[in-house]
Write a protein that binds this DNA or RNA. Structure first.
Lengths: 232, 232
DNA sequence: AAACATTTGTCCGTATGTATA
DNA sequence: ATATACATACGGACAAATGTT
């Protein structure tokens, strides 16, 4: 019997990595809720591993700001408030603007084509109201630029902040939405700027591409809050 | 015999924390050299602790980009090259510009006075050629702005990048220097902008306050490299 | 190519410290 | 306030995986 050569990558995935990804997902999607106490022993049992890899994963999650560890006392999921939009988005906007600046110095024609293709599919997804697909494609757009920028610090920070954005949306909007309003045009404008090697324009548009959704979300949450108070 | 009540704080510093700070210092100051292989067992022995806290510290250091872990194989100090100035400074400039923007919305008169005082002492130190003091005061200046910005993400990222800057200087300049040229005036200009709540100016100057030293260092290293080749 | 040696990744037991009754 | 329970922090040992002779 021929063994299927279809085993894509027999990458021995470590227990630490599995624990990290699973806990991270639980936190971002709200399964582990903000402020909730975490018992490493309990998590270890559920994940079917010992406490050591769980604890190592928690170290990383603390560094990323997803959990807070009070030494000897307890470790809990980092709380999150509505006002935190204003803490998450501005650094992300600044970093992604820097990323697109640096990408402008290195992009290939191939990259440009790839970006256009992604933006086309992004537009399609939005047209079909396939919002989850749109979200994925939006992230892919930024990811491609990140790769072109070729800067590990930018990659690390931006990836972390994007995950915080995702958690914020899950917690307060109960789903991971994309703010479609002008995104397609902005993406196109960024691509054009990149093709022209116009760093300043690319950076400026990219910044707005983050700050506008921030304001939209903040306003929306503000309205909801007002309604709650008005209704109560 | 009365026990001295002078024991400032009996803060039980954890083994993990001690290990983290010590290894971090060894890496930034070049005791552990770029690319050097790290044996957690060896470090544990030297630090007088077990492997567990050392490994937990290494998780954090990997997240911060100071070590690279190849699963199952080895963990080594992240290599660093001259060109990496261009990878470290731009994100730092962007983040610190964002920090000063957000600080502008919150600074108190007290903060402003504190900043002026720090800048005075910074100028004095530079005048006395007390470069180490100057470096400390420079970091204090940025730290004060960071606290005013009150944003954990900015704090975390900027602190990490500042440490990378420090390592870079130790490795390639063999000491932690400050680029004095126009720093005093720039700091003063930033403070003035903060006092006026002028976000745009503050951010612009702050960005230059990082990018100018970057270019100075890059040029200096370029010259040294040219001389090496010329001499050889 | 196979067995070895080294090093990492993981497990589990224990003690210290914190919060609760 | 004392005692109790519990979670965390650390240590030591084992096993899996990698590179080497």
């Amino acid at each position: 019997m021929p063994i299927p050569e279809n085993v894509p990558k027999m990458e021995r995935i470590s227990a630490k990595q599995r624990a990290l990804e699973q806990i991270q997902r639980w936190i971002t999607e709200g399964t582990l809720r903000p402020g909730e106490k975490i018992l490493d022993g309990e998590l270890a049992e559920v994940l079917g591993v010992s406490r050591t890899p769980v604890r190592e994963a928690l170290q990383i999650l603390e560094m990323q700001g997803f959990v807070e560890m009070q030494p000897g006392c307890a470790t809990r999921v980092t709380p999150i408030r509505r006002e935190d939009v204003y803490k998450i988005y501005p650094p992300l906007a600044a970093l992604d603007a820097t990323a697109v600046e640096m990408a402008a110095e290195r992009v290939t024609e191939e990259d440009i084509r790839s970006l256009r293709r992604i933006n086309e599919r992004f537009a399609e997804a939005l047209g079909n109201k396939a919002f989850y697909d749109a979200l994925v494609l939006d992230e892919q757009f930024h990811q491609t630029i990140l790769e072109a920028a070729d800067n590990p610090y930018l990659t690390s920070f931006i990836t972390t902040l994007q995950r915080h954005v995702r958690r914020f949306k899950y917690v307060f909007l109960r789903k991971a939405v994309v703010s479609p309003s002008r995104s397609i045009q902005e993406h196109a404008a960024i691509i054009d700027a990149l093709a022209r090697r116009d760093k300043e324009s690319a950076a400026r548009i990219m910044k707005q591409n983050w700050l506008r959704p921030m304001r939209e979300i903040a306003d929306r949450l503000q309205r909801e809050e007002d309604e709650e108070k008005g209704g109560a």
